[in-house]
Computed example of a mutant assay.
Amino acid sequence: MHAGLRITAFTAALAATFGTAYGVGEALDPVIDDATPTARHDTHPGASPEPESGPGDGEGDGGHGGHEAEPAGGLQISEGGYTLDLATARVAAGKRSELSFVVRDSAGRAVTAYQREHDKELHLIVASRDLGTYRHLHPTRAADGTWSIPVDLPRAGGYRVFADFTPAKKGAENLTLGADLAASGPYEPQPLPAPRRTAKVHGYEVRLDGALRPGRAGELQLTVSRAGRPVTDLQPYLGAYGHLVALRSGDLAYLHVHPNGEPGDGTTKPGPDVSFTATAPSTGTYRLFLDFKHEGKVHTAAFTVRTGTPGTPAPSEEPATPHDDTSGHGH
């Protein structure tokens, strides 16, 4: 993945077209257990961030000038002469299925050459429209250009699939193409969890400080601890100490950022703090997913966040309780 901010928005699709009911299932607490993105990124690891405000209450104004959000993109299945051809449009909830797709060029040919970014040629995100299920996957490419990976989506409902890649063609830009996926089963929509500052996952506690602001850059700092002690030996995961993805509730506008700094740059420490500079595409409610690696395992902590507007209440300090695992990582 390109090493900075990127924002992608797309319109919601109707699940009813499949002739059966879909359920988004049980909504999560701001915790998603152990698991494992994308148009353009603007902030590169190691670059000096321009936060509007430092970690804290996240409600004040002032600070450095912000970055305007890029025009919405990525709701397209085709962009820049490339098309996401999703062979798997429907799966059964709770059953292991093979997800396969091809990226085609303007002539309809399967793309077979990609630039490697963050150790992979292509990154795949699968998220349910209720934001209760999140997968960061790394499929395998066959010689003919077909990508595939097993998936097991625990709850029925509508999903969005994002393919994040950069073609090997000289001068090609990083792209994120999106397509809809459905998981059949009973339909039981649930609301998002309330905003909270802390999330617990597999014995770890992650605290979120800072503000996600519409149209202006702000700093988000996530602090990882376990058993009340700061975790100071985070491990690199895909070339970074943490990856943060935000999805806007409603249309799943997509925001992806990498941390300020990277392993081996001489200044970035392996925890407990991982900071990001991010700009929200608009006001609204977002679900944030932080991937971090410790002791050989990747974990995902999740938060519900409302963008900073006058009168917006601060997230509750009440700790969340762990919930069923609905996140996943794949290779």
Rank of each mutant, 00 (worst) to 15 (best):
His2Cys: 05
Leu5Thr: 09
Thr8Trp: 02
Thr8Lys: 05
Ala15Val: 10
Ala15Ile: 06
Ala21Gly: 11
Tyr22Arg: 10
Tyr22Val: 13
Tyr22Cys: 13
Val24Glu: 11
Gly25Met: 04
Asp29Ala: 14
Pro30His: 02
Asp33Tyr: 06
Ala35Asp: 08
Pro37Asn: 07
Asp42Pro: 04
His44Gly: 07
Pro45Trp: 10
Gly46Glu: 07
Ala47Ile: 01
Glu50Asn: 12
Ser53Ile: 11
Gly54Arg: 09
Pro55Glu: 07
Pro55Val: 05
Asp57Ser: 11
Glu59Tyr: 10
Gly60Trp: 12
Gly62Tyr: 06
Gly65Trp: 12
His67Gln: 12
Pro71Lys: 09
Pro71His: 09
Pro71Ile: 03
Pro71Ser: 13
Gly73His: 15
Gly74Gln: 06
Gln76Glu: 15
Ile77Cys: 07
Ser78Met: 12
Ser78Pro: 02
Ala87Asp: 13
Val91Trp: 08
Ala93Gly: 09
Glu98Ile: 10
Ser100Leu: 01
Val102Arg: 13
Asp105Val: 03
Ser106Lys: 09
Ala107Gln: 12
Gly108Pro: 01
Arg109Trp: 01
Arg109Asn: 15
Thr112Arg: 14
Ala113Tyr: 07
Tyr114Gly: 08
His118Arg: 14
His118Tyr: 12
Glu121Tyr: 14
Leu122Glu: 08
Val126Pro: 07
Ala127Asp: 09
Ala127Trp: 05
Ser128Met: 05
Asp130Cys: 01
Gly132Pro: 01
Arg141Val: 11
Arg141Ala: 14
Ala142Gly: 15
Asp144Ile: 08
Pro150Tyr: 04
Pro154Phe: 03
Gly157Pro: 04
Arg160Phe: 10
Val161Arg: 04
Ala163Arg: 03
Ala163Val: 13
Lys170Glu: 15
Thr176His: 02
Gly178Tyr: 02
Leu181Trp: 05
Leu181Pro: 04
Ala182Val: 14
Pro189Ala: 09
Pro193His: 08
Ala194Gln: 13
Arg196His: 06
Thr198Lys: 07
Gly203Gln: 08
Gly203Thr: 05
Tyr204Gly: 00
Val206Ala: 05
Arg207Glu: 14
Leu208Pro: 00
Asp209Cys: 00
Pro214Tyr: 04
Gly215Leu: 06
Arg216Thr: 10
Arg216His: 11
Thr223Ser: 14
Thr223Asn: 03
Val224Lys: 00
Arg226Trp: 02
Ala227Arg: 15
Arg229Cys: 02
Thr232Ser: 13
Ala240Asn: 15
Gly242Asn: 02
Leu244Val: 01
Leu252Lys: 08
Leu255Gly: 14
His256Ala: 04
Glu262Arg: 15
Thr267Val: 11
Pro272His: 07
Ala280Glu: 01
Thr285Glu: 09
Tyr286Lys: 05
Tyr286Gly: 06
Leu290Ile: 00
Phe292Trp: 04
Phe292Ala: 08
Lys293Arg: 15
His294Lys: 10
Lys297Glu: 08
Ala302Glu: 00
Ala302Phe: 00
Val305Ala: 08
Arg306Trp: 04
Thr307Phe: 03
Gly308Asp: 13
Pro315Cys: 06
Ser316Gly: 14
Glu317Lys: 11
Glu318Leu: 15
Asp325Ser: 10
Thr326Phe: 04
Thr326Gln: 14
His329Val: 11
